Simulated assay, not measured.
Amino acid sequence: MLKFLPGILLLQAVTVALVLMAPTDLENWGWLRLLIPVVIVGVLTAFWLGAAVAHKHKDDISRLQECHAKERESLRVNAERAKTRVMKQAHQETMQEVRRTSTEANIKVGMAFAGAAGIGGLLLLTQFITLGLLMLTTAGGALGGYVMRIRQEKAKANNLPTPSAPSSKPRLINASPPAK
């Protein structure tokens, strides 16, 4: 508002000065001598005030754009942080569930192997030696395979080289190596 006050006061001062300097007898076309300078000063003042308003409007728009850009960036950063936090929390919950399930499975498998070994020991004690040895070796082999699979999974999870498993193709002792 204070930006427009000098223009308004200047327009009023010029208008008052022109009216005071005007002749008292404004007959026929004499009023044009008063009206033309007042209109010219009025138009120039209107352009001046219009330029001031346009400049103020442009400043307001740039200030709003800057404020909106800061707010948008703030929202973007907060959204990225929230996304990261949610992903991290989901990963932790998944890993916790995997560990819990794995632990439960290991307990069940361990109990099954212990039961098979117990039955094999009982068979040995009750004079069923062949059947008892067969049960014990089966339980031991299954337990060994299970332990090897667990080691391979842990090595794969840690990106370590996995323990080598025997190749699926049998090799003859006296055979030449395969041609490439």
Score class of each variant (00 low, 15 high):
173 I>Y: 13
152 Q>A: 01
161 P>V: 04
173 I>C: 13
168 S>D: 10
174 N>P: 02
158 N>M: 08
172 L>C: 12
177 P>H: 03
154 K>R: 15
153 E>Q: 11
160 L>A: 01
152 Q>E: 00
172 L>G: 11
178 P>A: 05
156 K>F: 02
172 L>T: 12
163 P>Q: 06
160 L>V: 01
155 A>T: 05
158 N>T: 05
160 L>E: 01
164 S>A: 14
155 A>C: 04
158 N>I: 03
169 K>T: 10
153 E>N: 14
158 N>V: 03
179 A>G: 02
171 R>M: 15
169 K>A: 11
174 N>Q: 08
153 E>C: 12
153 E>V: 06
152 Q>V: 03
165 A>C: 14
170 P>H: 07
151 R>A: 05
167 S>L: 13
178 P>C: 04
177 P>I: 01
153 E>Y: 10
149 R>E: 00
159 N>F: 05
176 S>L: 10
165 A>Q: 14
159 N>T: 02
175 A>N: 07
176 S>N: 12
161 P>S: 09
159 N>L: 06
165 A>D: 04
169 K>I: 14
157 A>R: 12
153 E>H: 14
155 A>W: 04
153 E>D: 11
164 S>Y: 05
177 P>Q: 01
150 I>H: 13
162 T>F: 00
157 A>Q: 10
170 P>S: 13
177 P>T: 04
160 L>W: 08
172 L>M: 12
175 A>V: 05
175 A>G: 05
153 E>K: 15
172 L>W: 15
170 P>C: 12
177 P>F: 02
178 P>L: 09
174 N>I: 13
173 I>D: 10
154 K>N: 10
155 A>Y: 04
153 E>M: 13
176 S>I: 01
150 I>R: 15
157 A>P: 03
174 N>V: 05
166 P>K: 12
171 R>N: 14
151 R>D: 00
167 S>Y: 08
162 T>V: 05
166 P>H: 11
160 L>D: 01
171 R>E: 15
162 T>H: 06
154 K>C: 07
162 T>Y: 01
162 T>I: 07
163 P>I: 02
161 P>H: 09
155 A>H: 04
161 P>I: 06
173 I>Q: 14
156 K>D: 00
152 Q>L: 02
157 A>S: 10
160 L>T: 02
177 P>V: 02
172 L>V: 11
170 P>L: 12
179 A>P: 00
161 P>K: 07
175 A>Y: 10
150 I>W: 11
159 N>D: 00
153 E>F: 12
151 R>S: 04
175 A>H: 09
173 I>E: 13
173 I>S: 15
156 K>V: 00
174 N>E: 03
170 P>V: 12
177 P>W: 04
176 S>P: 07
173 I>R: 15
175 A>D: 14
157 A>L: 08
157 A>D: 08
170 P>G: 11
165 A>V: 10
164 S>V: 08
162 T>K: 15
151 R>F: 00
167 S>D: 04
167 S>W: 07
150 I>E: 05
170 P>W: 15
153 E>G: 08
166 P>F: 08
164 S>K: 15
151 R>E: 00
171 R>Q: 14
168 S>H: 14
178 P>D: 06
149 R>A: 09
172 L>P: 08
150 I>G: 08
170 P>F: 15
151 R>W: 00
155 A>L: 07
170 P>R: 10
155 A>D: 08
